[in-house]
Design a protein around this nucleic acid. Sequence first.
DNA 1: GATGTGTGGTAG
DNA 2: ATCGCTACCACACATC
Length: 747
Amino acid sequence: MHPAAKRLHDHEVSGDETNIEYGASEFGGFGQYFRNKQIKLDTQLREANQCRSQIFKDCHIYLNGRTEPSHTILKGLIVSNGGSICAFLGGKTYATHIVAEHLTKRKNNQFANYKVVKPAWVVNCVNQGKLLDWTNYRAIESSLPTLDPKETQEQIILEEREKVNCLAPDYISSYYARSRLHFLSTKKAELRSKCQQLAGQLPVAERPSPRTILHIDFDSFFVAVALKDKPDLKDQPICVSWGGPSSDIASCNYKAREFGVQNGMWVSRALQLCPKLVCLSYNFDEYTRCSDVLYQEIVDLRPDYVTAVSVDEALVDVTSLCSKTDASQLAQELRSRIKAKTGIEASVGVAPNIFLAKMALRLAKPAGVVCLTQSSAPQRLANCSVRDLPGIGYHIAAKLADLGVTNYSHLKRVTENTLKNQLGNAVGTKLVDYLNCQDSDDISLMDQVQKSVGVELCWGVRLLNDNEVAQFTSNLTEELWSRVQSLYPETLTIKFYRRAADAPFVTPKYMGCGRCDVTSKTRRVVGLDLEGLKTLVIQCVQSFACPPMDMRGLGLQLRLMDTTTPTHHAIKFPQLETASRSTSPNKPKIQLPPSRRRGPTTLSQFVNQPDKVEVDMEVFDNLPSQIKREIMAHEDEFLVKVPSSRSRSEPAAVTTYEPVSFRGVTSEAGLRQVLRDWMRSAESPHYEDVCEFRDFVDYLFDSDWNWTKAISLVNYLNHCSLNLSQDWQYLAKVMQERVAQKILPIN
DNA sequence: GATGTGTGGTAG
DNA sequence: ATCGCTACCACACATC
């Protein structure tokens, strides 16, 4: 083979760095890291020794369609003169030039932002030994480049939107209905909460000390499910994906992995590696069904503790059970029961801690059980890639590789300090733990109360103008709101995806987000209703000042109120002289509480629509569960308005509700007394009382000499609420927020 | 020094 | 064509 042709060949088979995009380099896993390094070395070598010239230095050239001379010849010319070839348009490094003879109308638009040249440009550059002005070789007619790029972009978006319209009313729900990652995330959350509610979970203190932990999951779950009704394909290389060239492989079987196919890889790439790869479809319903069987079987064991790791994966503390039965026998029986009921193989790792259980599971696959002990582990794990250690992903593995650590046993070559300095304290400590086969994580401490709720959508987002951005944002906010349910949001973090300046307008992945710059902002949202939230989010999105057509995705995350570690925050008293200025030019008007009637607590109503009396079903659905229960309890009074019911005497057994009143109470001590009585009277505050309190605080605050009393009262409420229900705590937050709003103009 | 914000990493 | 989610941890840095 001719040296130049050989280089070309090598360049192609070693993978093209221009094809790395959206973390695609992860797909090769750890090997890819070295491969990338190798490519760099190759390039340097070529430049140093073998290149005829550097004419095309820094040129990444994409060849489009039929050309004269042929691709092969052009490639040879480009590469041997210091340039490189773009195998795909787009990706992390973008093409500097496109070589084309003729362009379709669509490609005329698509390529409008590129330097599109005729093949003669390449040939002439080489002949004259220098980089010639490309504009003399334009492949796009002179009339076309004058097109406003903005109009071109608009056209592209309009075309794309005919197929995928992110503004369609059901876009978000239909998207999530088909997203595997959404499925995994939501299932995990669901299972976690179910596991937490399991009766009989032994608290940490009561569980005996050397534990027996099972880590169980299905083998290539999605593929196994897909193969259930296609047993004849069992020995073929199989993957599960939606099927197109740029669709992700969600799962592939061991046969496919032999070819280098990996989860997360694009189908096109996988087909290069394994032309016979068979793509099968998702079946989310069946995943759920198998998952239910798995968890049911686990629960039926009556273990000490269960933690959901994933839809197909769980950690089980079986210490107590193993005092009678042998752990591996238990695991084997579990495996066969699950196999019998689902038709799918599962594997089990057995070990004294989570780390070792996870590693044992790896060794157990496929379709097996492996037990690891502190003493047997070091030997069995020695050749394990660091990439396989829990919490060690692509990036940390790469850093470890720079330290000369690629597998488990290498870890002992590096000092603890080096690890901590290079990888951070947490990871360093964890790795040292791993080396000692220790794991400080406790299975029951892994699932705490939920700390945040979020939504994210970064596919198919193609928007033309500010209005559309607002519409899309509003839709996504509604989706977020629908997931808030009975939770108490405190702050909102907005994550904004914007096309990277040098990323191509048309993304390599169909309708994907391409390479993006991601920025985020955090805002307080205590006391906001859906409309308020929408306004805030839209305003925030606009503050990113992104051209609408470059928006590629949006994430919204609500941090929830933390009731486990209360911060004893109090509102600070402003300086006296500045405070007096607060006697407002625009004094907020004091709203009168709605007519006195018995009713449930509706904190959300307070927040949403203070004066509304009827219960809106949509509002109802979003209420905290405690409040819902109360509404249900008072349902009769709610649906039928009976003002007279107050005068009717209640049965003695029923505690009668006395509305709170602060009016006429002047001393701070007196006010606190009323507050204390109120808090003692109910597990959750009643709606009318909330309004009364709000109005009273407003009144104190606005009648300009009593603002200190208002702040003090709210601080007192906050202080006391720390021992009360979340509803009380949230009320305190809402009031603090309200008061803070009033102080704000002073600062 | 405690607290909050923005960013980055990981897992399935 | 295609469905690139989401909760959580950790860290650097700003703020006061």
